[in-house]
């Protein structure tokens, strides 16, 4: 059907795929993702990913990075060069990240060894340990995962400092210590972090501070970072990021896209 509206979705995770799936009968959908496989944080091997990727009937542009949106077209770039895709609506389904240092209000110097949990886990998976005695800020999924990955990669001990308390079951690992209802207010050390001072007044020794607290939306398409023209945001800021939440956010975004398109079509 040539006159179906074109919709561009950035992010081929469960949210983006679920959105594409919900729009499959009313729009021609293109899904763009900078990773060369679908699935996002849930992975390309997940059953839901495989099923949605097959059933959504969207045109997939994987391994391409969406960089600009001007309200009429999306510009993405990848191995085949820049691609301009006209679209009646843009859906941003690019997931989330833990809060950064400024967002957490951690004062002090700028020593090495302050890293996001996303980075610490990736490096650990590749055999690179960011700290032997890491202090992990957070008590949710990212924090638990970082504790596990770093211990597995050789960390002697890990201390979780949980501003909102421990959101998951207490880790059974003896090498993981927990400080509930406390937060890191400043860090010190040169050139690598050596201590972190908590709101309770205590100062703990550490050789890395892993930021794993809170959830912020990742938005990197210029023109659709805050309130973009004809842009819909499908980024559930929830911990844990479950498949159910992702599906629900995708469906919700699809409904928003439909009402946007309906408005356009009305005279």
């Amino acid at each position: 059907m040539p006159d179906r509206p074109l919709v561009a979705i950035v992010g081929a995770g469960i949210t983006g795929l679920a959105c594409a799936h919900a729009l499959r009968d009313v729009a021609d959908v293109t899904v763009v993702d900078r990773i060369p496989v679908p699935g996002g944080v849930h992975g390309w091997e997940a059953a839901e990913t495989r099923e949605l990727a097959r059933a959504c009937r969207a045109h997939m542009r994987l391994g391409e990075t969406a960089i600009r949106w001007d309200g009429l077209a999306l510009l993405a770039i990848g191995q085949d060069g820049p691609q301009r895709m006209e679209a009646a609506a843009l859906v941003i389904a690019t997931g989330a990240r833990p809060l950064g240092r400024a967002e957490l209000g951690i004062a002090g110097g700028r020593p090495a060894g302050i890293v996001a949990a996303t980075v610490a886990c990736h490096l650990a998976e590749n055999g690179l340990l960011v700290g032997r005695r890491p202090l992990i800020v957070g008590g949710g999924d990212w924090a638990m995962r970082a504790a596990g990955e770093l211990r597995a990669a050789g960390a002697e001990r890990a201390t979780l400092v949980c501003p909102d308390g421990l959101l998951r079951e207490r880790p059974v690992d003896d090498g993981v210590h927990v400080r509930e209802r406390d937060r890191v207010v400043s860090v010190a050390g040169t050139p690598r972090v050596r201590t972190a001072t908590l709101a309770s007044g205590e100062t703990l020794g550490c050789d890395a501070v892993v930021l794993a607290h809170g959830v912020a939306a990742l938005r990197n398409v210029d023109g659709a970072v805050w309130a973009g023209d004809r842009a819909v945001y499908a980024q559930p800021l929830a911990d844990p990021a479950t498949v159910e939440r992702a599906r629900a956010a995708g469906a919700e975004a699809a409904a928003a896209v439909r009402s946007l398109i309906d408005q356009e079509e009305r005279p």
Binding site: A112, L128, P191, R192, A208
Partner: peptide
């Protein structure tokens, strides 16, 4: 990767023995 510096040479990204 272990030995690359964040800033000054002894501020390395990784800790521990180079494997």
């Amino acid at each position: 990767p272990q030995g690359i510096a964040v800033s000054e040479p002894d501020a390395t990204l990784g800790v521990g023995a180079d494997d």
